[in-house]
């Protein structure tokens, strides 16, 4: 029982962090049709900015300033890079963000070095929130949940309840009409790109010290974020939310299961040859691969994702 509850909490926490990362990506995709390969790079930038700021003035200013800075960097990249690449079509855009991902990593290496940096959890948040059965639940995990849920609510409110949200939604489907009504659509795109990257930056600020701030942190989450977005349905914010929680829980629980691949196949009546490499694998070993298996399954049986709007 203890184990199930704790694992569920772990899964939800991880899922919410994934959502923070993927919400920006799916937002940018639904707005601009750009699959931003460099998205995880902004996550890393958020972590490094926050590390730098917190080493000067503390964690709390960093929590606010770092995502804004990342957003500004994102907006500048959109204005002076992506917009130029946009003229040459989707492939050019895709390649641009692809190259950008490498560029961000190399720049981070140049400035902060190859090794991990010491970006600690602030003392106020370092401790135990509550003890469930005999396992401690750290304050910081609660804080992560709070930030991501708060962000979800704010984002939803912004998109559905405000004027700027309405314009953004309109620009999503009918950019020409919105432009004809006198709105500056390229600027809206720039804001959305900046906003999306700022969300990734925010995830980096709180994920950087929850895990480890190092130059390969972007590559480590880069692929899983795409899994979330594809499983949830490209462009669907709600889908990204459901998929994040789903993948968070799948990964957490699959680690816990001590059954082997042989047992799983036995369930569906297939007997694997004894002693082979595959039959000795356990689900625990496979845990990090499962989201990708899920993605392949979704792409085969439901290409538009769980809640995706369009077939693409």
């Amino acid at each position: 029982m203890e184990f199930v509850v704790i694992s569920l909490l772990n899964g939800i926490t991880y899922g919410l962090l994934l959502f923070m990362l993927s919400s920006g990506l799916t937002l940018i995709f639904s707005m601009m049709g750009v699959l931003n390969f460099a998205h995880a790079g902004f996550y890393m930038l958020g972590a490094y900015f926050a590390y730098q700021i917190s080493s000067w003035v503390g964690f709390w200013p960093g929590l606010l300033v770092a995502p804004l800075l990342v957003g500004v960097v994102g907006a500048m990249i959109e204005r002076y890079g992506l917009r130029l690449a946009h003229k040459f079509g989707h492939v050019a855009e895709l390649l641009f963000t692809f190259g950008l991902a490498f560029l961000v990593e190399e720049v981070v290496r140049l400035i902060w070095g190859n090794s991990s940096v010491d970006y600690p959890i602030p003392a106020e948040l370092d401790g135990t929130l509550f003890t469930l059965f005999s396992t401690d639940f750290p304050i910081y995990k609660g804080f992560m949940m709070l930030i991501s849920v708060g962000m979800l609510v704010a984002l939803y409110g912004l998109l559905t309840r405000t004027r700027i949200g309405l314009i953004i939604q309109a620009a999503l489907t009918k950019p020409d009409m919105v432009e004809a009504l006198g709105h500056n659509v390229p600027r809206i795109f720039m804001l959305v790109f900046g906003g999306g990257t700022a969300l990734a930056g925010l995830a980096g600020v709180i994920g950087g010290n929850a895990f480890i701030t190092e130059p390969s942190m972007a590559a480590a989450v880069g692929s899983i974020v795409f899994v979330v977005v594809v499983v949830g349905g490209l462009g669907s914010l709600g889908g990204a939310f459901v998929a994040s929680l789903l993948i968070g829980c799948i990964q957490t629980f699959s680690v816990a299961l001590s059954i082997s691949v042989t047992d799983v196949f036995a369930l569906v009546g297939i007997a694997l040859p004894q002693g082979s490499q595959i039959s000795r694998l356990t689900i625990t070993q496979l845990a990090p691969v499962l989201p990708y298996i899920l993605m392949v399954g979704i792409l085969i049986f439901r290409p538009r994702g769980l809640m995706g709007a369009r077939e693409s």
Binding site: G11, A220, Q251
Partner: peptide, 9 residues
Amino acid sequence: KDFAPYVAK
């Protein structure tokens, strides 16, 4: 990235 599930185990 997150060893919490392993620690729970």
